[in-house]
């Protein structure tokens, strides 16, 4: 019984930890003079094709400077974060986004790793359930041996063995 319970709770904890670690989204004030920080908050999520795999906010090339100025101009015009990202992805292709949108073929990017993980988990669980039933008796006896009082003896046993 205990085994079932603990397995369930481990699975529950694992499920809980599967809740994405989302950072709180940056709320943008629609002011007339956007600050550098507001520009950076959006640039961080974009990649310019000129300097691959460096986020736009950390890139020093002239191209990236111009891109950031464009973001600033769009913010000044009152565009929202989503609209600006959409503009950039329309203008330069979806590779400027830090991650492709979850649609069409790109669903595969998102769904493959978790499904493989689940398959792996299933395989491992089956490995165990094959042997689970015959274990019950063994379980009782071993657990008695594995008594806290025996800990000292075990340490000593190991200790002698290694000497």
């Amino acid at each position: 019984m205990e085994i079932k319970w603990i397995t369930k709770s481990i699975l529950l904890v694992m499920l809980l930890t599967c809740i994405p670690f989302n950072k709180t989204p940056n709320v943008l004030a629609q002011d007339i003079n956007p600050t550098d920080d507001e520009v950076n908050a959006i640039s961080k999520q974009l990649y310019c094709p000129v300097c691959e795999s460096i986020p736009l906010d950390a890139c020093g090339t002239q191209a990236c400077i111009q891109w950031r100025d464009t973001i600033r101009a769009k913010l000044t015009d009152g565009w929202s974060e989503e609209e600006i990202k959409q503009y950039f992805s329309d203008q330069y292709g979806i590779r400027v986004l830090a991650e492709p949108p979850v649609d069409g073929f790109n669903k595969l990017l998102w769904y493959l790793p978790p499904s493989l993980f689940l398959i792996g988990a299933l395989l491992v669980t089956r490995l165990l359930s094959n042997t689970k039933n015959k274990l019950h008796v063994q379980h009782e006896t071993t657990s008695n041996i594995e008594n806290a009082n025996h800990y000292v003896e075990r340490i000593e046993h190991d200790f002698k063995k290694w000497q």
């Binding site: 000129v50 191209a63 111009q66 101009a73 203008q91 330069y92 590779r95």
Partner: peptide
């Protein structure tokens, strides 16, 4: 290529370029 419109138009007028120019939309 991968350019911003404002600066691109500035560039075209600085160099007085009259032949047709357009953005590579989607860098395709």
């Amino acid at each position: 290529y991968a350019d911003t419109e404002k600066e691109a138009l500035d560039y075209l007028s600085t160099w007085d370029i009259t032949y047709p120019n357009g953005p590579d939309v989607g860098t395709t």
